[in-house]
Design a protein around this nucleic acid. Structure first.
Lengths: 95, 95
DNA sequence: CATCTAATTAGACCATAATCTAAATAATGG
DNA sequence: CCATTATTTAGATTATGGTCTAATTAGATG
């Protein structure tokens, strides 16, 4: 898990909104893209950055690619910058 | 508090490291800059982005500028992207 | 296999970010 | 007020990021 890639990915509002959409469940690239006023290729680049960061996973279903949120990577990265403590009161298995 | 500015600020490793240094207490611009292999002006630009995001506050002491961490802005931004829930188990005064 | 749909990759272009050196501002101390 | 220390601002340069259209890949279907 690369902190750098994760926070780079989080730095763009479109990508944060993609993550927010995926919180309610997996969605196809096309379905996700339809919620934005951007070309499909542009959206595809955003998907790629989220994939590279490990924030989403992708699975092929027929001709569609289904994206789903990888919440643990997101949580670990955010916890990392917070240094645990004030938020995670033993919720996760931290020492 | 601008989510955009906060996550833009967090996207650069130098700025995340500055925040980490400030966790142990306020420090002058010069002291902070000495921990990096970058020119003072470059560091100053990084400070400015952190200021703009509200992640740090600055106070003048003599000829020095003392930076300190604004933890609440950091926490709120990270909680925002997590949508609360899995981390903050009522630790903060969330509804 | 030709074709259709879904999505990505390639290539180009423009905007923004990161960095540097040099100059400017701000406070302190003779 | 001039010199010194601390830091920022200005201006230029280079690298990276976001976006588009056009072309490509991958799977499904007649």
């Amino acid at each position: 898990m690369s902190f750098n890639a994760v926070f780079e990915a989080l730095s763009h509002p479109v990508r944060r909104r993609i993550l927010a959409l995926l919180k309610s469940g997996p969605k196809s690239a096309g379905d996700l893209a339809n919620g934005f006023d951007l070309s499909k290729p542009t959206m595809s680049v955003h998907f790629a950055k989220l994939r590279d960061a490990g924030l989403v996973e992708v699975e092929r279903r027929g001709t569609s690619l289904i994206y789903s949120l990888n919440a643990s990577v997101l949580e670990e990265a955010l916890a990392g910058v917070l240094d645990l403590g004030q938020f995670g009161s033993g919720t996760k298995g931290d020492t």
